[in-house]
Design a protein around this nucleic acid. Sequence first.
DNA 1: ATAGGGTTAG
Length: 458
Amino acid sequence: MRYRDVVAATAAIGALARAGRHRDAVSLFSRVLADGVPRPNEFTFGTVLRSATALRDPRAGAQLHACAAKFGLRSDVFVGSALVDHYAKMGAMREAQGALGDTREPNVVSYTALIAGFLKNGMPEKALGLFRCMPEKNVVSWNAMIGGCSQAGLSEEAVGLFREMCREGVWPNEFAFPCVLTSVANTGALGVARSVHASAIKHLGKLDVYIGNSLVICYARCGSLEDSVLVFASMEQKNVVSWNALICGYAQNGRGEEALAAHKRMIATGLKANNVTLLGLLFGCNHAGLVDEGYSLFKTAQREQPDTLKPEHYACVVDLFSRAKRFDEAKRFLEDLPFEPGLGFWKSMIGGCLIHWNKDLAESVAKRIHALDPEDTSSYILLSNVYFSVGNWESASMIRRHIKEKGLKRITGCSWIDVQDKAHVFVNGDSRHPQSDEIYKVLEVCLDNDEDEHCLAV
DNA sequence: ATAGGGTTAG
């Protein structure tokens, strides 16, 4: 069938795209093009390019780009933004920049698409540079910056940008809050969480399910399970993500029993658990020592929805057994894995050996790890800690020397506490804090009261 | 008839 005019043809392509039938949309475009009638215009290209992007098909994108150029539409702003967005989402940032350069009158959309691309492809400085000098900003450009920083793990930047946006008088919409709340969750600042929550109510009135979910996880990560549960209870709409957020919150805070209970309630509402649910449950069981419950959940999932199982779930089971000193079961489980265990699996085992002072097993597992990766520092450290724990100082310091000699780099873990919305970060043996002396005095008092605890030198 | 931004684990 032929289309009466270009409007009808474009509408037909657009309808396919809206129905998610992107492959058909691209085919229809090719047919229209082959017929030669009607002649596609800038709207047609914009529409079909979106489908090529949704398909993540760089070949189709490049062909459409060339074709648009042939039709003299390359410098149109609609075609241009669609091209920038396409290339940015394919990770081809040079081409994306080129497409913006070819656009005669680039607008907010063109710039925003490029900024989002820079952030997604690990170039936050370029994104920020462009954002600072773009001719015009709107709430979407702000959201792209906030969301992109949040995804890139630049939590402080994301929160800062959110504040700046509000200061500039830009009214945040519902898209901004999930991003900024994720970032707040990563910094763990409860006071900030509360103020962003208040800001959401002030700006939006009603909170949608995305924001509710983000609040549940944010409060849990900031250490306030009370607020987390309160938000969850107040949500009108709940989906799998909401339940997962609740379950994971319980799990992170060591409340395995409550996580299991929440899972039962979730099933009762007719929702099906997915891979994240299972991971949260296993994690919760892990930290509450609910070994049999956790393993039985795993086996049920293996039976009923084997497609949801990923290596991470198997790793949790290894952790579950080895933390509980059930090394034989852990070993048997490892041998029966349906895939090659990665380093993480063996590290899990050493972790268990450290808790239970199992030197012999730690040695044999360390051998396996170093066969896979001789540069793996964390397993050396874990092994030397096992030696420390059983009082074998010589072997322990030998390993430390070995690490130094090989020049292996180790990633230092850190912890922090939040005092009046300011995070104070510490690493082991740190003395850089301005109140360091006082802090250590208080610490000594605490440690004196607690002499039975084993203090592991890492 | 067309465009850019959102939530869950480690």
